[in-house]
Design a protein around this nucleic acid. Structure first.
Lengths: 220, 220
DNA sequence: ACCTGAACACCGTTCAAGT
DNA sequence: ACCTGAACACCGTTCAAGT
C-alpha cells in the first residue's frame, strides 16, 4: 500500500502496524512473520516498529484483539439463542479467515479492549435472558470451548487441497484398514464422500449445545 | 540424565530425542525449545539430532504424538458414556500437563500412530454403542472440539499465580466497572470467589454434551 | 553409522546516532 | 518525535569432514 521510496509514506501508528501484521500473516502464515519483514512491508526498518509496539509479543496481543474486533457483537434484541448462534457463526468465520489466531491465543498475555467488549456483550445477552451468574459462566465457557476447539480442528484438516490429495488419503486408508478399521471406515465411507463437508459439523454441534443450555436455563 | 562428558552416553534414537523435547518444553516452555538447547540437554551438538528427526517440524509432530500416547485408550466394556467421559478427563489431564501441545496442533502436518490409534478407539466405542457412521463423526467432532477448546482456554487463564495477582485483577475490574459491567460482575462476584475453580467448568460441559448425545443416539 | 565444526541466511532486541 | 545502522546473542539447517 504505502510507497517505500517516495516521501509520501503514511505516518505509522499502532493500528497501522497491527493491521499490516494481520494482513501479512493471512497471506504468508504466522511462522514467517518477522519484525524485519513487517518493516519491509511498511517501507520502514524493523527497528522503527518498536516506536509503536513494545515488542513482538505486544504485536501478537494486538493481532488477537484485532481479530476480536472483526466479530459481530451479539445483540439482546433477537432472543439469546439467536444472538448466541449468530455470534458463534461469526466467531468461527473470523477464525477461519485468520487461521493463525487460534495458535496465538495460547501465548497471549493480556486481553485487549475489543476482546473485553466482546465477552462483556456475550455475558450481557445471557444475563438479560435470565441466566444466573454461574449459569452464564457455564454457558459462555462451553460455547467458547466448542468454537475455539472447532476452529483448531478445522485449521488442521489434512485435505484443504483436494484432488490428488484425496486419492492419496484413500489409498493410505485402505492400506491401514486392518490397523485402524474404524478410522478407515469413517474416512472411506463418510469423510471422502463428495457431499461431505466438515464445516457442516459446526452447526450440528452448536445447536446441540444451545438446545441443552436452553433446557438447563428453563429448569433453573 | 545422560552424561555429556563421559563416554557412557546413551545412544540416541527418535524416541529419546522426542521425549527429551517434551520434558524440556514442560520445564522451559515451547518458545525456548531450540535444536541447539535440546542437543545440549542430551550432551550432543544440535546437528546430531538431524540423524533422528527430519527437522524441527518433524520433531514437533513427534511431540504431539507423544502426548496422544499418554492418553488412556477408551474401552468399550463400560458403556459408551462412561468410556467417553473417562477419556475426555484423561485428554484434558494430559493437555494440562503439556500446555504447549494445544499450540502445536495448529501447525502439525501428519498425525502419528498413537494419534491414529486413539481416534480409532474412540470411533470403535461409538460404533459399538450403535452410533451410525455420521453420528459417530458428529459425536467425536463435538467432544474433541470441546476438549481442545477448553484446554486452550485453561492454558490462557490470567491468574495461575494467585495472591497479589488476584488483588490486582480485582482493582482493575472495579476501575472498568462502567466500561465492562457484566465482565466486572462475573469477575468480582464469581471468578474471584475463593471456592471458584475454572477446572470445574469442564465436567459441567462434558456432561451436558454427553447427555445431549445420548438423547440424539436414542432417537436415531 | 553416528557425530562435529564451520558456515549461511536468518531472528528479536539494544543502543547511540541521525533528522 | 520518529527513524536508522550497527551490533549482540541467538535461531534452523546444509555440508564437508571426522571417527
Amino acid at each position: 500500500m504505502t510507497d517505500p521510496r517516495g516521501g509520501t509514506r503514511a505516518r505509522l501508528n499502532r493500528t497501522t502496524v497491527v493491521q499490516a501484521a494481520m494482513t501479512f500473516a493471512d497471506a504468508n502464515g504466522i511462522e514467517s512473520l518477522s519484525m524485519r519483514k513487517l518493516g519491509g512491508e511498511l517501507g520502514v526498518e524493523a527497528m522503527s516498529l518498536y516506536k509503536h509496539v513494545a515488542n513482538k509479543s505486544d504485536l501478537t496481543d494486538g493481532m488477537i484483539d484485532g481479530v476480536f474486533a472483526e466479530i459481530a457483537l451479539p445483540s439482546g434484541k433477537t432472543g439469546w439463542r439467536t444472538a448466541m448462534r449468530r455470534r458463534a457463526i461469526s466467531v468461527r468465520e473470523v477464525l477461519a479467515r485468520h487461521t493463525w489466531a487460534i495458535g496465538l491465543m495460547e501465548s497471549r498475555t493480556t486481553p485487549g479492549p475489543a476482546t473485553l467488549r466482546h465477552h462483556d456483550a456475550v455475558l450481557g445477552v445471557l444475563r438479560g435472558a435470565g441466566f444466573s451468574i454461574g449459569g452464564a459462566a457455564h454457558a459462555s465457557s462451553i460455547m467458547d470451548s466448542y468454537i475455539y476447539g472447532f476452529a483448531l480442528q478445522e485449521t488442521n484438516l489434512p485435505s484443504k487441497t483436494i484432488g490428488t490429495a484425496r486419492l492419496a488419503e484413500l489409498v493410505l486408508a485402505k492400506l491401514a484398514y486392518q490397523q485402524y478399521p474404524h478410522l478407515a471406515e469413517l474416512t472411506i465411507e463418510h469423510l471422502l464422500q463428495p457431499e461431505y463437508d466438515y464445516g457442516n459439523e459446526f452447526e450440528f454441534g452448536i445447536d446441540l449445545i444451545l438446545d441443552a443450555l436452553e433446557r438447563a436455563r428453563r429448569s433453573a
